[in-house]
């Protein structure tokens, strides 16, 4: 028998363990769910994880009012229902919601602009949580500020609940473009860039050297079809969050299956044509252009 492992030396909640969890999600689809029945459908469709929330973003838009973390009893039901990881959304700057989600055993916390921010100035300090966090970003400085606060995964903000992929594309292109720019700058130019953009200096240098974000980078916000998911993979995302796009579709089972398969086949148009055929209508949606400024969620928590 091999020598025994020293259990005294075992460490939890380290940056390696948190970022490692995010890495295991790569190439996968994370689906928004509101009930345990939806969680079951998502797991059967091949989701790598589910995101528990009180209402999908499209319904939050319609309903108005204050959007908060999901009911803990509901989160527990979803955790009991599926074997894949369960994520949960907390309000920006609402440390107590995040602590409650961690206590429930949620595997990753999304400090999300889709919910009504609890704090206009500050995000939660995510470093001393054992659970990993994911946060949204529209550009590189935003992404690096979230990573400095302890985020183990970044996703584009997009414009949630619209079914319009336009803003997710814009945010992903912006991040990639800024990384390319930085990689071409020398040390003092990167220092100046960090200063001017309010971005953490050490992370600016690290990202410029790596040529990519130091954590996993997913697409989110407005992804509604297999083709949308494939488009975001083409733009270099590591994986996909689908919010209202699954359960807002005519046939959530077919749509869920098709989006999972589209992510694996994003660079094969023949396969994509087959995957996207006969799956029913996507969510109705609302074009980003038609949204009044005050209804845009992406400007929350910069």
């Amino acid at each position: 028998m091999p020598e025994a492992t020293d259990l005294e030396e075992l460490k939890r909640g380290t940056e390696l363990v948190k970022r490692g969890f995010a890495r295991m999600q790569k190439g996968g689809v994370i689906m928004d769910v509101v009930t345990r029945e939806q969680a079951r459908i998502a797991e059967d469709a091949g989701a790598v994880a589910v995101m528990a929330l009180e209402a999908v973003p499209a319904d939050i838009r319609k309903r108005g009012g204050v959007a908060r973390m999901p009911d803990p009893a509901n989160v527990t039901e979803i955790i009991d229902e599926v074997s894949i990881p369960v994520m949960g959304k907390s309000r920006i700057g609402h440390r107590k919601e995040a602590e409650i989600l961690e206590s429930l055993g949620v595997d990753m916390i999304d400090e999300s602009e889709v919910l009504t921010p609890a704090d206009d100035e500050y995000h939660t300090d995510k470093r001393d949580f054992t659970s990993p966090f994911v946060c949204g970003a529209r550009n590189l400085p935003e992404a690096l500020r979230r990573i400095r606060e302890g985020a183990a995964m970044i996703r584009t903000k997009g414009e949630a609940g619209t079914g319009d992929v336009n803003q997710a594309v814009k945010h992903q292109r912006t991040i990639k473009n800024q990384i390319r720019t930085l990689s071409g700058l020398n040390h003092e130019e990167r220092e100046k860039w960090a200063r001017e953009h309010g971005a953490p200096r050490d992370l600016v240098h690290e990202t410029a050297d790596l040529g990519r974000l130091p954590v996993v980078n997913f697409a989110a916000g407005g992804i509604a079809t297999p083709a949308d998911a494939a488009l975001m993979m083409y733009h270099g995302c590591d994986g996909i969050f689908v919010g209202s796009g699954i359960f807002g579709a005519e046939d959530p089972v077919e749509m869920g299956n098709a989006i999972v398969e589209a992510v694996n086949n994003w660079d094969d148009p023949d396969e994509l044509a087959d995957i996207a055929s006969g799956i029913g209508k996507g969510m109705k949606g609302q074009s980003n252009e038609s949204l009044p400024e005050e209804e845009r969620l992406q400007g929350r928590g910069v």
């Binding site: 091999p2 492992t5 020293d6 259990l7 939890r12 490692g20 969890f21 990881p85 055993g105 990993p132």
Partner: peptide
């Protein structure tokens, strides 16, 4: 367990 029980450790391997 769940993600909060995930860990790193020094493991002796044959």
């Amino acid at each position: 367990g769940r993600q909060k029980d995930s860990f790193e450790a020094k493991v002796p391997i044959e």
